[in-house]
Simulated assay, not measured.
Amino acid sequence: MTVLPQLFQPLTLRGITTRNRVVISPMCQYSAHDGHLDDWHTVHLGRFAIGGAGIVFTEATAVQKRGRITHGCPGLWTDSQIPGHARVAQFALRHGAIPAIQLGHAGRKGGMQRPWFGNGPLNDADIARGDMPWTPVGPSAVPVADGWPVPHALSQADINELIDDYATAAGRALAAGYKIAEIHGAHGYLVHSFLSPLSNKRTDQYGGNLAGRMRLALEIAERVRAVWPDELPLFFRTSAVDGTPEGWSLDDTVVLAGELKRIGVDVMDCSSSGIAGAATASGGQKRQPGFQVGYAERVRKDVQMTTMAVGLITHPEQAEAILADGRADLIAIGREALVDPNWAQHAARTLGHDTAFEIWPQQAGWWLAGRQKTSDFYVPKCDASGA
């Protein structure tokens, strides 16, 4: 009897079951219009559902208009944005994938340039294109770096409104048909900036010691969990380390994960760094295959919590080994899915799970199976580079 690869074993999270452990990570497209998704997003995300992934995440979606990373980032701060999200969610469901959404607020990184224009603070050229700046917000009046705007330090009233807006956005995500919600607590954005002592210099109940710096993340998670139905899972993405000794640490992440689990968060999505500079900056860490997997492994072991590994996981054997060794429960694929939207299906062939195109959509699978029988046609597998 053939043993089913762990990468293709279903996973049950509360009331949903994924068809496999492959997750398409949220990847900003910077192509929304006043926070609204369009055909680009439906096609971009739809191809991953057709390509066999178990869970497909829509990119970071702002709960407030000023919470966008760039002018091209989507939101759910108004009901008019629901239909675009519904198209994405419904398409994914029809093609066997679980639609998921990452809810966030850019905080002091709000109002940046689109990356192809520089990935920094807005300048005169951006304003000439029509991207007008706004005042970013954060835990303290501490800019991301020299030359970046000084953020407005959120008041208690601002924080109360923010938490309400997270809950309201979660309700809109539910109305759109998403089955998983993730709170974005990583990469230097607002929630992460409250967690990190590098950016949080507050002396009130939302600053100071670890409990104070965690307060906002926990209050948001509690409110979102109250809105999100009991039968649907809630994720939290963390930057497990800031990458500097004086910053947020892996020990801090373990404590946070324990508190989030108590509230009802089901999965810790373990990334890292980004408190200063680009969201994908490594924070001084050596970027090598699977360089962040150890964070997911530590949380899984110490907190007894389901975790998702992400970061330079590019080929099926690597992903399968992470799961088989008990280091994580889900594998998030990002840029490698941009190279190969059918990564999951090619991985199934590589691991010997699907040799007859049975997990491909019928519209494609029957063609490919027929050609395989009648010719020497070679269907490439994912090699060690993920190509």
Rank of each mutant, 00 (worst) to 15 (best):
A309Y: 03
G35R: 05
V137C: 09
G258K: 13
A257K: 13
T203K: 14
A89R: 11
W343T: 14
E222W: 01
G177F: 02
L250G: 00
P197V: 09
V22E: 00
A145S: 13
P233I: 06
V22T: 08
L260F: 04
T306A: 09
Q362T: 14
Q6L: 10
L190W: 07
P245V: 10
R172L: 05
K286L: 13
P5A: 09
E182G: 02
A384V: 06
N123A: 11
V254F: 03
G171D: 02
M27H: 08
V339Q: 11
V63A: 01
R237W: 07
L45P: 12
I263D: 02
G138N: 04
R94T: 11
A153I: 05
T306E: 00
P99V: 10
G120Q: 07
A328L: 08
W148P: 00
G96D: 07
H33Y: 10
S80W: 01
D252P: 05
A181V: 15
M214W: 02
L323C: 07
A181N: 14
G107P: 06
S199L: 08
A337Q: 11
L7I: 05
Q292R: 05
G75T: 13
S271G: 06
I183F: 00
D165Y: 03
P197F: 00
I69K: 11
P143M: 08
E297M: 09
A319M: 06
L13P: 13
V22L: 08
H192M: 07
S375K: 12
G243H: 09
T18K: 03
G284R: 05
K373T: 04
W367E: 10
G51S: 02
A384K: 12
P115M: 05
Q372R: 14
D329G: 13
